[in-house]
């Protein structure tokens, strides 16, 4: 049973937002909403600046406050890859999960249900990569099975330095940022 995750090389990302646009067209994300977004963090005083650019989305955490708070069971863990999903038909749009997610990854879709990144499970189950990974012109995003020690993502995590977002939130996120 795989455990899907993403490894993102911040040394290569240029913050171009192609991943955001590809997600929007692939998944028909409505105007004004995004399932993924770019964070640019810079520190220091000109001209001595350090900067990290990251593409962020739902972390498909191993410990999921958004699933445990859901009163209807719409927010759940998929039986493949540990991907966190929302069943739109069951969701009542109560916003509990939107509040619970420490990464601000969820929003209420204009059609009334909670929505967020699905790791493009519809593509992954067809053997394709997520749309954002597939489009990235800097090839900085990697997707795969974190439990397979020979996967590209596992090898990258063994060979490079990395960090996760909000490591102290107790969520055990599955998106890793190479530095």
């Amino acid at each position: 049973m795989p455990r899907y995750g993403m490894v993102i090389d911040t040394r290569k990302c240029v913050g171009c937002q192609d991943c955001v646009i590809a997600c929007k067209t692939e998944n028909n994300v409505p105007v004004g909403y995004n399932r993924d977004w770019i964070v640019t963090e810079s520190h220091g005083k000109y001209p001595n600046i350090q900067m990290e650019i990251r593409t962020e989305r739902c972390n498909h955490c191993s410990e999921t406050p958004c699933v445990s708070c859901c009163p209807t069971g719409a927010s759940h863990i998929h039986d493949v890859g540990g991907v966190v999903l929302i069943t739109h038909e069951v969701c009542i749009g109560c916003k509990a999960c939107v509040q619970a997610c420490p990464y601000d990854a969820r929003f209420i879709h204009p059609d009334g249900y909670a929505d967020k990144c699905t790791f493009c499970i519809h593509r992954v189950e067809e053997g394709l990569k997520p749309a954002c990974v597939e489009v990235c012109p800097t090839y900085c995003m990697y997707f795969g099975d974190l439990d397979d020690p020979n996967s590209e993502v596992s090898i990258l995590l063994q060979s490079r330095k990395w960090h996760v977002n909000l490591p102290d939130a107790g969520t055990q996120p599955n998106i890793f940022y190479l530095t």
Binding site: C16, Q17, D18, V20, I21, A22, T25, E134, V135, C136, P137
Partner: peptide, 11 residues
């Protein structure tokens, strides 16, 4: 096989 963000938004 990879368009830039403008190209991806071309629709």
């Amino acid at each position: 096989g990879r368009l830039c963000p403008r190209g991806t938004g071309g629709v």
